[in-house]
Amino acid sequence: MGSIARIILQRLALGLLTLLIVSMVIFVAVNALPGDFAQQILGQGATPEAIEAIRKDLGLDQNYFLRYFSWLGNLLTGNLGISFAQMNFASNMGGDQLIGVAEQIRPRFMNTMFLAGVTAVIAVPLSIILGLLAALYRNTVFDRAANITTLSSISSPEFFLAYILILFLAVLNPVFPSLSNIFDGMGFGDRLNKTMLPALTLTLVVTAHMMRMTRAAIINLLASPYIEMARLKGISPMRVIVKHALPNALAPIINVIALNLAYLITGVVVVEVVFVYPGIGQLFVDSVKIRDIPVVQACCLIFAAAYILLNLAADIMSILSNPRLRHPK
């Protein structure tokens, strides 16, 4: 098991390095966008003096390196900084009751996690079961139908899927609300009801990948001698697949699940906008629009960290699920 601990540490260190590089790329990219916070917030009222005043208040008049390293320094002490919008507001007020980026992101992030959680609870069992059944009844009408459905749903743009669901589940048959404006203090049932349509949309998006990987991994194994043996013993096809094939197919399946879970956290922007779901994706879009660099960077770091951690988790799980990797010679 010592080797696993070493792998985890190694990967975490690499992850930190990745995050550092990501933060640099984001900083350069956001600064390369035309216009800055001062220009965006002032709009038509962007006189040179007004722009200068805001830039000075926000420290945007300092050079890039200074700004980046002071941000990085704060980050290392666990301080994500204060959003430009808040700082601009404060300079107007002269007050000091500022909401930090961390507090600003936290409720949004929790909402996104809730949506990802609901989606995962629906999508992961669904796609694994569909994958197993497709492998079991491969090349039958059921297999083809499952493939065609999931492939067409993954190939359609998310907003299109969202509108189709709205049409059928909100307009024609009002089962779920088309507006997912969840808020604090809402009952769990209510919240779940409002989250259903975005969760179903995301389910349609991620199911194909996981289902097809499950199917492929299992079919791959079905040709191996030990499965042949199991069959010759007279075990039922279902039992062959679940008991004999699935444990050996877990590694690739877990990998794909982790990748899709990461997508549920980072790739939800469009779905959140369509359903007006107050998650981190909406906050991210709003912040990019006004070039609120502290918020954009914090969001990007969260996205990057989600990818890194889930991939790490996937690798560790696949090691644990494979005795050959668990006990290397």
Binding site: P177, S178, L179, V274
Partner: peptide, 10 residues
């Protein structure tokens, strides 16, 4: 999304 919200009575 806004038009939808009105059309579906949200």
């Amino acid at each position: 999304a806004r038009m939808n919200a009105l059309m579906t009575g949200q």
